[in-house]
Write a protein that binds this DNA or RNA. Sequence first.
DNA 1: CTGAAAGCGCTTACAG
DNA 2: CTGAAAGCGCTTACAG
Lengths: 335, 335
Amino acid sequence: MRHTTINDLAVLLKLSASTVSRALRDHPDISRKTKDKVLAMAAEKNYQPNLIAQSLQNRRSNNIGVIVPEIRNTFFSTVISGIEEVAYEAGFTIMVCQSGDSYQREILNTRALAANRVAGMLVSISQETTDYAHLLTIMEQGIALVLFDRVAEQVPVSKVIVDDFNGAYTAVCHLIEKGYRRIAHLAGSPQLYVSRKRREGYEAALRDNHLPIRAEYIIAGGYHEEDGRSGAQKLLALSRLPDAIFAINDPVALGVFLYLQEQGIAIPDAIALVGFSNNPNTELVRPRLTTVNQPAFEIGRTAARQLLKNLACGPEQQSTETITLETELILRESS
Amino acid sequence: MRHTTINDLAVLLKLSASTVSRALRDHPDISRKTKDKVLAMAAEKNYQPNLIAQSLQNRRSNNIGVIVPEIRNTFFSTVISGIEEVAYEAGFTIMVCQSGDSYQREILNTRALAANRVAGMLVSISQETTDYAHLLTIMEQGIALVLFDRVAEQVPVSKVIVDDFNGAYTAVCHLIEKGYRRIAHLAGSPQLYVSRKRREGYEAALRDNHLPIRAEYIIAGGYHEEDGRSGAQKLLALSRLPDAIFAINDPVALGVFLYLQEQGIAIPDAIALVGFSNNPNTELVRPRLTTVNQPAFEIGRTAARQLLKNLACGPEQQSTETITLETELILRESS
DNA sequence: CTGAAAGCGCTTACAG
DNA sequence: CTGAAAGCGCTTACAG
């Protein structure tokens, strides 16, 4: 019933707890013979070290906290998969929280993870987050921090992102090359760094190609399918319709796609469409969606590796490097 | 830098650690005045109780372990989302591991979580798992256990499943009603209880409708898109082609779908297709896939609730109830 | 109403 | 090569 402890082993072996502990950790002071006896007994009694007690002693656990807006979202669950892979290989376990894109809940998540004394945190901030005090608190508490995808520029920590500006720029240039001239953008919320960068890429592409930037063609909104639908609806109400839409991400692009289809508007003949992320389902619809690939799994692996690296450093020499992974324009039939 | 401790507060307030601890936990013995002073100081110093120390003392943590075959898989990530919701509301944090459908890794996952002294575990077993000793070990260690979706019949614990037999039975009856007679089944692996139940439902539907059960129409395999492709390929190599395929789950159905399309085989005219799970992308393809709805989010919530309930009980009175959620046949154009 | 003491399961500096 | 002691940050039975 109860877990076997070091003390149990010590009593059984007529040794001290210190010696058993050292034998278990293969300390050079302990004789081969004693080690063998201890190891044999540990195996026999199915001894499993109590990581909680170890963590308390070491003032640091083997857990890594992960905070994402929503676990059930292909992009984030794929990132988490990548994080878990790397963490597992390094002997760490991940604690996963979702903020539900709520700033308040994100704060509670960081508190819960800090209270659990995680060694580090990997976080992708909520849509509402504009104040970063909770992230600074984490750092002051000596918890390593790496931001990914939805990062906060102002927070001086390692970040793992993709080249959002370039991804957007390339996507919009492609539309222009294809002959589209009235290109709208469903832009997400201006709070988020990724959204600003993608929007800047969009605007730069227009500017570099001597096309006007029209305010009515830029619609702020959320990151889900519904936001794509409502955005598309607003665009279709304009007197001068766009001939192409660049969406902040694939869920939004999908919302646009479904809405346009319901309205009987041909893609790409009446309106072309480009998304961002390369979620698997962009390949399933007809016409298939042109999108910008974001290597989700690799983002997870990279962020986790970066965190592990920081864990090995002292609190003073935490890296603040920003790692930018490449995007790739995936040409398909929606543009 | 360092976290504030109860002792720090005690020194600052010239009280004993015991009193501070009691005040923080709102113990009735402590005077209102003292409580207020303690609370004020705790707030000022941003005191966060060390959950690790608490867990060691209480011999039980506020963490729940979750093991799934693969995090990035719509079904499982949705279940995890549901689990997190319920756990969060109850003040628990989840630790998530993926077995990658490897029996060995699943064992290591249970060990890691047990070493972390999680209060309970929610697990969906790997495709390879046929020996359940590791699950029994967990229970012997006093860790509450609830299995979901991929359960092991023999393990005497709470389980949350859907009515797989009925879901399959209904789906196949529907095909028969539609006039299909040569219905094949891509059946997953016989180790898994869910697979056996779905296959039994399939066979019962044929039998009840006086149709022959043909061995060459039942193909064992895995649970991914590739398995759907290879299964479809095998079926197409038969001299007598099936006129409908019932796939073990949606990823497999999707693989079939894509393979048939590549081969220029019309769905449902040449071959009809039905999946299982109602993953979001079954609605995106054309023709849309008929499938059996499995309430993934609700499975997660229910399993988590059941675990919390067991956590409240003594180790002797753990429920072994099996909760069966209803499935629903979602009729679409692929059948 | 408050405090001293012991203990949860481990680790490690110190002694021998 | 091994052990006794102290301590990580808490909680709680016992005493006063």
